[in-house]
Simulated assay, not measured.
Amino acid sequence: MTFRLTLTVNGEPRAIELDDPRVTLLDLLRERLGLTGSKKGCDRGQCGACTVLVDGRRVNSCLALAVSLEGADILTIEGLAQGDALHPVQAAFIDHDGFQCGFCTPGQIMSAVGLIREGHAGDDPERVREAMSGNLCRCGAYIGITQAVLDAQARMAGSAQGGAA
């Protein structure tokens, strides 16, 4: 039995045929679409390394069945930058050393983008740490991650205000 679904992945419409309804979004992205930025850490939704945005919301892609996402708009780390121009969150992670080994970084960045888009980042480091608590970093780069989220939030708020003038 074949399951057909249509998704938009990083702005590109994709028609996909699956032979197994148990395929997770993470496995679809990594194994069938070649988008390996989202990492398979725990494969249980506990580490956040696989975080992507589905219709603008943060999702652990290892827990989402691909067949349940018919018509969804998926944004992965590969679709975040605009050509050579990094997304403000990506630039802030570099500026604040928000990574060490880099394994968790794609999930951290996607979670941060979602957090900022949701309007929950604010300017309080503790609030950011709590909102990002679903993303684990084995290296302990949490100070840089928190600083990067706060900086990106401020940059994005400033550019939104500057564009509205």
Rank of each mutant, 00 (worst) to 15 (best):
I145T: 12
F3W: 14
G11F: 09
G45Q: 01
P21L: 10
C47E: 05
A131M: 14
A85Y: 00
V149T: 06
L29G: 01
D43N: 15
E70P: 09
T2I: 12
A112D: 04
G162E: 10
A49D: 03
P125A: 02
R117W: 04
Q153H: 15
V67I: 15
A66H: 05
G56R: 07
S68Q: 15
H120S: 14
R127L: 11
R32P: 06
S38N: 07
G162K: 08
F99N: 00
C139T: 11
A85N: 11
N60T: 12
A148S: 10
L65A: 08
K40Q: 12
E126W: 03
S38Y: 01
E31Y: 10
D151M: 01
H87G: 00
D151Y: 02
C104G: 08
A152Y: 01
C104I: 04
G98Q: 09
D124N: 15
M1W: 07
T36G: 03
G56S: 08
A92L: 01
H87D: 04
F93L: 14
L63C: 06
C62F: 11
R4I: 06
R22F: 09
S68R: 15
A85D: 11
Q46G: 11
A141H: 03
L7M: 13
D55T: 13
A49T: 04
Y142V: 12
G162P: 00
R22N: 15
L136G: 06
G48N: 02
T36N: 07
P21N: 09
L75G: 08
V23W: 02
V89M: 12
L115H: 02
F99W: 12
D84H: 01
E70D: 15
Q82D: 14
G107Q: 05
A81H: 05
D73Q: 15
R32W: 00
L26R: 00
D55K: 13
L29V: 06
A15L: 08
R44W: 11
I77A: 11
S38L: 04
G41R: 03
L7H: 06
E12C: 09
D97E: 14
R4T: 12
V113C: 12
D124C: 04
A72F: 08
D124E: 12
G158H: 10
R44D: 11
R14M: 10
I16N: 05
R58Y: 06
A148T: 01
L115F: 05
Q90T: 07
L136V: 07
G144L: 04
R155I: 01
C50F: 03
T8C: 14
F3I: 14
L29N: 01
G41M: 02
H120Y: 06
L86R: 00
G45P: 09
E31K: 12
A92T: 03
C101P: 04
V54W: 07
V128H: 00
C104R: 01
D19L: 12
H96M: 07
G98H: 04
R58A: 12
K39N: 03
I16R: 09
Q46W: 03
E118M: 03
E12L: 13
T76V: 09
D43W: 08
C137G: 06
T6Y: 06
G48S: 10
L75R: 15
M156R: 00
R30E: 05
G56Q: 13
S38F: 04
A141W: 02
D151A: 15
A49E: 13
L69G: 02
